[in-house]
């Protein structure tokens, strides 16, 4: 990475705030600065991709060249009680979550 790239800012303070909000993260000033720096480095690194000429390349949406992986509509027995055991909080058979609104 060149020195110029390192100094360039690829993500604004506002964008980091927005991301934190979306990820439901409360960041201290120190964490915020650290994260922004890290994100900036990652994004800067990804800028390398911009150097590749993609003029005549069609977009890829899946890395594997396969299509149509489908299954039949046949139910299989499940083990719901085993899964429920992993739930952090329960009430009767409900899984408890924090109040949302």
């Amino acid at each position: 990475m060149t020195k110029k790239q390192r100094q360039e800012q690829f993500i604004s303070e506002k964008e980091v705030e927005h991301l934190a909000e979306l990820a439901k993260l409360e960041l201290s000033k120190k964490e915020f600065t650290k994260l922004r720096g890290e994100l900036n480095e990652i994004l800067g690194y990804f800028r390398l991709i911009d150097e590749v000429d993609t003029e005549n390349v069609s977009p890829t949406y899946h890395v594997q060249d396969i299509v149509n992986v489908l299954r039949d509509d046949t139910p299989t027995p499940q083990q719901p009680d085993m899964l429920l055991e992993d739930a952090p909080q329960k009430k009767d058979r409900f899984i408890k979550a924090p109040k949302m609104i």
């Binding site: 039949d72 719901p80 899964l83 058979r93 409900f94």
Partner: peptide
């Protein structure tokens, strides 16, 4: 009863993979 028709996929267990229903 609640949470009886569930499996790792629809309950989002890490590592589980969705497969589309043909019908």
């Amino acid at each position: 009863p609640p949470n009886t028709n569930i499996c790792p996929v629809c309950i989002g267990t890490p590592g589980s993979l969705p497969v589309l229903n043909r019908k």
